[in-house]
């Protein structure tokens, strides 16, 4: 079973994302900011990361820069999931190594479609 780390400072969003991703066959771990997510990844690299942008302690983009420098950190497929929808922001995320990008609000169809684009399902 593939694993997905859901990183979002909103407990509600994490819960919604968890339900959708479990339905399409992922095992879920949760983190509430980039720092916590990085600790998770150092312990066990997930197959996928669903990543919010704006979070306390460490933002999603900072997390992504750190992750890609970690040993094995090039492996996880990273899908941003954020209210940021400026094209410059999307470019920045892709330049930092994001694989796909979801603009909130999202639903199950969008997550499934984007995870398929990213080759995760």
């Amino acid at each position: 079973m593939k694993t997905c780390l859901v990183v979002d400072d909103s407990r509600v969003i994490r819960k919604v994302a968890r339900r959708i991703l479990e339905d399409i066959g992922f095992e879920i771990a949760e983190a509430s900011d980039g720092m916590e997510a990085l600790a998770w990844c150092r312990a066990a690299m997930p197959d996928a990361v669903l990543l919010d942008w704006n979070m306390p302690m460490m933002t999603g983009i900072e997390f992504l820069r750190h992750l890609r420098l970690e040993p094995g950190g090039d492996k996880p497929t990273v899908v941003f999931c954020t209210v940021e929808n400026d094209i410059e922001r999307i470019r920045e995320a892709l330049d930092c190594g994001a694989n796909e990008y979801i603009m909130k609000p999202f639903d199950g169809d969008i997550i499934a479609s984007k995870f398929a684009e990213a080759g995760l399902i």
């Binding site: 094209i87 999307i90 470019r91 892709l94 796909e100 990008y101 979801i102 603009m103 999202f106 169809d109 969008i110 479609s113 984007k114 684009e117």
Partner: peptide, 10 residues
Amino acid sequence: QRGLPIRQLV
């Protein structure tokens, strides 16, 4: 966000 890869969007 339905079917369009993000790189195509950009």
